[in-house]
């Protein structure tokens, strides 16, 4: 294996009862890459990221982050954005920043506050009183304010309005380090494909294809978005 591989999955399997969510997923992501995890709903994107973040146990195969299975070490170098609101709703924005600063040594509180100010989120606002989109933005700001080796973002642009989407994309592009890798899952590929190095297509729990964005555009003459629609046509 390449020495630069920071994140890989080997023959990963996961079942929920009798339903198969992941059926032998294998891939490798090298350092410095921005990778899109694409697939229709139910293709296993969230399951894969949850296993990688150490919140779910696989039934077979393994995930390695910097050569280790999910655990305390991988959690310390992985910044994970779940697909749902995880911050306690009774907290204020400032409390959440303090919480991250408390628990993560690689967290840059000043950067987080600056980002929140850019997005017009007041420090004294209660998280429970924010709109869903604002909560998502808030959570993403916190996730991106860590200087992790691996970022795992589950649907970071799902419920966010287009203006904020641009800001967030810029934030991601400006903030991730050359020695870090970033994997984000999405089914809205159009806006962000030009920001990606590679895409991994998931279908029914298997990797359909892992390919460079420009390589795919060169090969097919289509954007990834168009290719995506073609491949997953119902």
């Amino acid at each position: 294996m390449n020495e630069n591989v920071i994140y890989e999955a080997q023959d990963l399997h996961k079942r929920y009862g009798s339903r198969v969510a992941l059926n032998g997923v294998s891939f490798a992501v090298t350092t410095g890459k921005l990778v899109g995890l694409l697939g229709p709903n139910g293709s296993g994107k969230t399951t894969l990221l949850k296993i990688s973040a150490g919140l779910l146990t696989a039934n077979g195969g393994c995930v390695l982050i910097d050569g280790q299975e999910p655990g305390v070490y991988t959690k310390s170098i992985t910044s994970y954005l779940p697909d749902r609101m995880a911050l306690p709703t009774e907290m204020r924005a400032a409390d959440a920043v303090d919480l991250y600063a408390d628990f993560y040594t690689d967290f840059d509180a000043a950067k987080a506050r600056a980002m929140l100010a850019d997005l017009h989120i007041e420090a004294r606002n209660r998280i429970g009183a924010m709109s869903k989109g604002t909560q998502e933005k808030m959570q993403l700001c916190l996730t991106m304010s860590r200087s992790a080796r691996l970022y795992l973002l589950d649907e970071p642009l799902g419920g966010v309005d287009p203006a904020a989407r641009d800001y967030i994309l810029q934030t991601i592009l400006r903030n991730y380090h050359e020695d870090a890798a970033l994997v984000l899952s999405t089914h809205l590929i159009g806006d962000i494909e030009r920001a990606l190095d590679e895409v991994i297509f998931l279908q029914e729990g298997s990797v359909l294809r892992q390919v460079g964005v420009d390589a795919l555009r060169e090969e097919t003459g289509h954007s990834v978005d168009e290719y995506f629609r073609e491949v997953y046509k119902c």
């Binding site: 150490g54 919140l55 959690k75 779940p82 749902r84 609101m85 911050l87 306690p88 628990f103 993560y104």
Partner: peptide, 13 residues
């Protein structure tokens, strides 16, 4: 449950 997404992501045993 829901809190696990935050708390169990922390680098704590």
């Amino acid at each position: 449950g829901e809190q696990g997404y935050l708390m169990l992501s922390l680098p704590a045993a």
